[in-house]
Design a binder for these strands. Structure first.
Length: 533
RNA sequence: CGGGGCGUAGCGUAGUUGGUUAUCGCGCCUGGUUUGGGACCAGGAGGUCGCAAGUUCGAGUCUUGCCGCCCCGACCA
C-alpha cells in the first residue's frame, strides 16, 4: 500500500515536471473552448454572423428545426419544418416545369457499372465520389452471434453504382423510346435522391445524399436543345428571384467548371451574406455526347438517321442553404412569405380560460378571413408556453408575420402585428386585418428581395489590377468583375493563389476591351469571380 | 487523407493526485399559481460515464486498441 502510494507520488511528480507547460497551455485552451460552448449552446441565443458565420449557420439549421445530423456520416435528417419549406419549393418548381411542357417520371436509384461508364467524361467526373453496391445479401456471422456479415456467396456479377446523377440510366432507357423525329422532344423531369460521397459535408449545402429534381430532355436539333437549356435557366432564375427573394446572376460556366459530359453549363449564381458565392442551379446543354455514348438515333423527316440532342438541369436541397443564408439574421431564420410553411402565427395573451375562449372566437374569425385570401395561418393556443417564449420561437423559425391578441385588444378591437424582416410592430384594427396582412406579406417578399439585391450590389466590385483583385477578395469579399484572358491556365492559377473561381460569364455580357488582370493579355469582357461554397 | 477538438440523462455540462450512493442547469412528468418579450413554487422520473480489453483491493478518472462525431484544410460535376 505504501509502495503504491510512493509510486503514485513519484509518477505524479515526474509527469508534472515533464508536461507542466503543455498542461498549462491545454488548460487555457480547454477553458476557452468551454466558454465558447457555454455561450453558444447553453444560452438561447444564436452565434452571430459577424462572430462566426459558419457556426451561426449550423446552429440556425438545428435550432430552427430544419435538419439535423443523422446516424449516417454526411447524411442529414430533414425535419418536418425544414421539409415543409422544401415541399413549398417543390410545388412551385413542379408547376413551373409542367407549365413549360414537362412531365414527371421515375428512374432507378442504381446504375449498372457498364452503363455508368458509357459516357466517359461524365463517368470520370463522378467516379471518385460514387457509392457502389457489390453484394445483395447478409448472413449471420458464425464467429459472432447476433451480428451480420456480408455473404461472400452473394457477390453481384456486375456492380451497381448508386446514382450521383441519372444521365446514364435515363439515356440507356431513351434509346428504346426514340426511333423517329415524331418521338421527340422528350421533356421529362424526376424528383429523386442522389448520392455523392463528399469528403466534407455541411447541412443542406453539401451532403452525401441529397434531394433534387433533374430534368432530362431529348431534341431533334441543336438549336432546340440550346433553347431548352436556356429556357430552364430562366425558370430557375425566376424561381430564385420571385419565390426565394434571392437575386441571381445568369451565366455560363467556363470549361473548368463545366458539368462532366456537357458541352455548355449554364448556371444561376447567388451571393450569400458573408460574401461567398453559391451555385444555386445548373442547366446543361449536353450536345450529342449521351446520344453517341448510348447510340440514341432517330429518323429525321428525310428518313436519315441522326443523333439526338440533349439537355439536363437540376436544383437541389442546397437551395435550402441558399435561402437560409440569403435572408436570416442573428435572431434566426427569415423566410420569404411565398415559401414559409405558415405565413402568419397568432399568439393569444390571456388571463384564464374564459378570456382565452373570447380571444379564440375573434382569432377564428380572423383566421378564416385570412385563409379565404389564401394566407396560411397557425394559431398557437398552447398553454404550456407563455407569449414571450412563443415570440422568440417564431422569430427563430422565421415566420413572416406574427399577430398577438390580448385582453387590451379585445376591448379596443385591435391586434398587434409584427413583421419578421424588419422586426417592426404596429397596432391595427381587427376589422379588415386580412387585407392588411395580404399587403404586408407582399411587402415582406419584396423587401427581402430588395435587401438581398442591395447587398449583392454593395458587394460587387469592378477591378482592373491583380493587386486590387486580391485585396477585395480578402477584405470586402463578394463578386469581383475582372478581365480574363479566356484560358483555363490563368483561371487555375488564380484559383490556386486566391481560392477564387470564375462563377460565370454573364449572359448578354457587356463587351469591352481590356487586359487580363493576371496575364495582361487582351480580353473582350469582364467575368465574375468569387470565392464559392 | 492531414491538423485540431470532443464523446458522462433528450440537450448543455461538473467530476480535484483513482476512493462510499456520478454534479448542476435546461428540458421532461405530476400538482398549483401564472400569461402584453424566453414565468414561478413544490414534488418526481430519467445514466451500460462511446465500445472492448488491461492495470488495480477499487476505474467516469490510468494504459492500449477500436468506433463515432464536430471544426479547419485538401476535395467538391
Amino acid at each position: 500500500m505504501w509502495g503504491r502510494w510512493l509510486n503514485d507520488l513519484i509518477y505524479r511528480r515526474t509527469k508534472g515536471q515533464k508536461v507542466y507547460f503543455s498542461i498549462f497551455a491545454i488548460y487555457f485552451s480547454i477553458n476557452l473552448q468551454i466558454l465558447y460552448h457555454k455561450r453558444n449552446y447553453m444560452s438561447k441565443e444564436l452565434s452571430t454572423r459577424a462572430a462566426n458565420y459558419s457556426e451561426w449557420y449550423n446552429e440556425l439549421v438545428e435550432k430552427a428545426d430544419l435538419a439535423q445530423h443523422s446516424a449516417v456520416k454526411g447524411c442529414m435528417v430533414i425535419k418536418p419544418y425544414g421539409y415543409a419549406i422544401w415541399e413549398k419549393m417543390q410545388q412551385a418548381l413542379d408547376k413551373m416545369f409542367k407549365d413549360t411542357g414537362h412531365v414527371n417520371a421515375y428512374f432507378p436509384l442504381f446504375v449498372p457499372k457498364s452503363l455508368f461508364e458509357a459516357e466517359e467524361t461524365n463517368a470520370e467526373g463522378f467516379a471518385k465520389e460514387c457509392a457502389v453496391v457489390t453484394h445483395y445479401r447478409l448472413k449471420s456471422d458464425p464467429n459472432n452471434k447476433g451480428k451480420l456479415i456480408v455473404d461472400p456467396d452473394a457477390k453481384l456479377t456486375e456492380e451497381l453504382i448508386v446514382r450521383p446523377t441519372s444521365e446514364a440510366i435515363i439515356w440507356s432507357t431513351y434509346k428504346g423510346w426514340i426511333q423517329s423525329y415524331r418521338d421527340l422532344p422528350i421533356l421529362i423531369n424526376q424528383w429523386a435522391n442522389v448520392v455523392r460521397w463528399e469528403m466534407r459535408t455541411r447541412l443542406f449545402l453539401r451532403t452525401a445524399e441529397f434531394l433534387w429534381q433533374e430534368g432530362h430532355t431529348a431534341h431533334e436539333t441543336k438549336a432546340e436543345a440550346i433553347a431548352e437549356t436556356e429556357k430552364m435557366l430562366h425558370v430557375y432564375a425566376d424561381f430564385a428571384e420571385n419565390w426565394m427573394a434571392m437575386p441571381v446572376l445568369k451565366g455560363i460556366k467556363t470549361a473548368n467548371e463545366r458539368f462532366a459530359g456537357a458541352d455548355e453549363t449554364y448556371c444561376i449564381e447567388a451571393l450569400m451574406q458573408d460574401g461567398k458565392a453559391l451555385q444555386a442551379g445548373t442547366s446543361h446543354f449536353l450536345g450529342q455526347n449521351f446520344a453517341k455514348a448510348f447510340d440514341v438515333k432517330f429518323a429525321n423527316k428525310e428518313g436519315k438517321q441522326e443523333y439526338v440532342w440533349a439537355t439536363s438541369w437540376g436544383v437541389s436541397t442546397r437551395l435550402m442553404g441558399a435561402l437560409i443564408m440569403s435572408h436570416s439574421d442573428d435572431k434566426g431564420l427569415v423566410l420569404p412569405p411565398k415559401l414559409a410553411p405558415f405565413q402568419v402565427v397568432i399568439v393569444p395573451i390571456y388571463k384564464g380560460e374564459e378570456q382565452l375562449a373570447q380571444i379564440s372566437e375573434v382569432v377564428f374569425r380572423m383566421k378564416k378571413a385570412m385563409e379565404a385570401k389564401g394566407i396560411s395561418v397557425k394559431y398557437d393556443d398552447r398553454d404550456n408556453q407563455r407569449p414571450g417564449w412563443k415570440f422568440a420561437e417564431y422569430e427563430l423559425k422565421g415566420v413572416p408575420v406574427r399577430i398577438a391578441i390580448g385582453g387590451r385588444d379585445l376591448e379596443n378591437g385591435t391586434v398587434e402585428l409584427a413583421r419578421r424582416d424588419t422586426m417592426e410592430k404596429e397596432t391595427l384594427q381587427q376589422a379588415g386585418i386580412e387585407d392588411k396582412v395580404a399587403q404586408l406579406l407582399e411587402q415582406i417578399q419584396d423587401n427581402l428581395y430588395q435587401k438581398a439585391l442591395a447587398l449583392r450590389e454593395a458587394k460587387t466590385t469592378t477591378v482592373d489590377t491583380y493587386e486590387e483583385f486580391k485585396s477585395v477578395l480578402e477584405g470586402k469579399t463578394g463578386f469581383v468583375l475582372a478581365h480574363w484572358d479566356g484560358t483555363s491556365e490563368t483561371e487555375k492559377k488564380i484559383k490556386e493563389e486566391t481560392k477564387a473561381t470564375i462563377r460565370c460569364i454573364p449572359l448578354n455580357n457587356k463587351q469591352e476591351t481590356g487586359t487580363c488582370i493576371y496575364s495582361g493579355k487582351p480580353s473582350t469582357q469582364r467575368v465574375v469571380f468569387a470565392k464559392a461554397y
